[in-house]
């Protein structure tokens, strides 16, 4: 049994009085991709954002439950959220390059962390861009604005930026839904290459993306986790009728 890197138990989330997540239990082993699927409003993105305390800044949201990263309580009062988000990086739906150079985008997290040594920064920027499979395309233009790149390239820069702080977990919230199919494919290939070294949790509306790239799939509906299983099993012979109906397009 591989070591559990992240454990979440009885996760509940309230918008004011209204409960939006009804007690989610999900564990993650080290490495590999877990896909979270489900119709809009099923709670998969809400749950994802709770994993690195993205709801902290929204004051009418309350999160309860157990969140353990390597056994440590993510919601402990003394947890440094900046540190936490370096360990649990995030890539959003819309590529969000900062309005400065490619190099500075990728080096951003490291500089925030106080790294000043040019050699270390150079090394880290290069290895992150390589890991995100974008190095060959940008290596001669590192000081060009990241905004000048295509959407697919910007998204891979976003992945490189998240990787630069050596996170243990990468959260991806529909990372390809704003991209054309070819760019989406490049990003998917990047994720497939990364799955040997990172634990990734991806929210996706694309069933075929979940089946192509993930090792495990979790199906959410109406704030509940309906089923989680190996992706092969989920797409061939899921345990729950509701999973079967959703995956085969009968609802949602």
């Amino acid at each position: 049994m591989a070591e559990k890197i992240l454990v979440t138990e009885n996760v509940r989330l309230y918008y004011g009085e209204k409960e939006a997540l009804h007690g989610i239990n999900l564990d993650y082993r080290k490495y590999g991709i877990t896909a979270l699927i489900g119709p809009s409003g099923s709670g998969k993105s809400t749950y994802l954002r709770a994993l690195n305390r993205m709801h902290d800044l929204t004051d009418y949201v309350t999160v309860t439950g157990t969140f353990l990263l390597n056994g440590e309580d993510i919601y402990a009062p003394n947890m440094d959220t900046v540190q936490l988000r370096k360990q649990i990086g995030m890539v959003f739906q819309q590529p969000m390059p900062f309005p400065f150079s490619i190099y500075d985008n990728v080096a951003f997290g490291l500089r925030t962390d106080g790294v000043k040594d040019k050699a270390i920064l150079d090394e880290k920027v290069e290895s992150s861009l390589k890991a995100a499979a974008i190095w060959d395309e940008v290596k001669d233009d590192l000081h060009k604005s990241a905004l000048s790149l295509s959407g697919g390239q910007q998204q891979r820069i976003s992945i490189a930026r998240a990787l630069a702080t050596s996170p243990e977990i990468l959260l991806l919230d529909e990372p390809t839904s704003a991209l054309d199919p070819v760019s989406a494919n490049l990003v998917e290939n990047t994720l497939i290459q990364l799955r040997e070294q990172y634990t990734m949790i991806i929210v996706t509306h694309s069933m075929s993306q979940a089946s192509r790239i993930s090792d495990r799939t979790a199906f959410f509906n109406q704030g509940k986790l309906i089923e989680v299983n190996d992706t092969k099993k989920m797409f061939l012979n899921p345990d729950q009728q509701m999973t079967q109906d959703y995956i085969s397009g009968r609802f949602g």
């Binding site: 089946s211 192509r212 797409f235």
Partner: peptide, 9 residues
């Protein structure tokens, strides 16, 4: 074969 059809369509 079944797996590949289900996972890759």
């Amino acid at each position: 074969s079944f797996e590949m059809i289900a996972l890759y369509q």
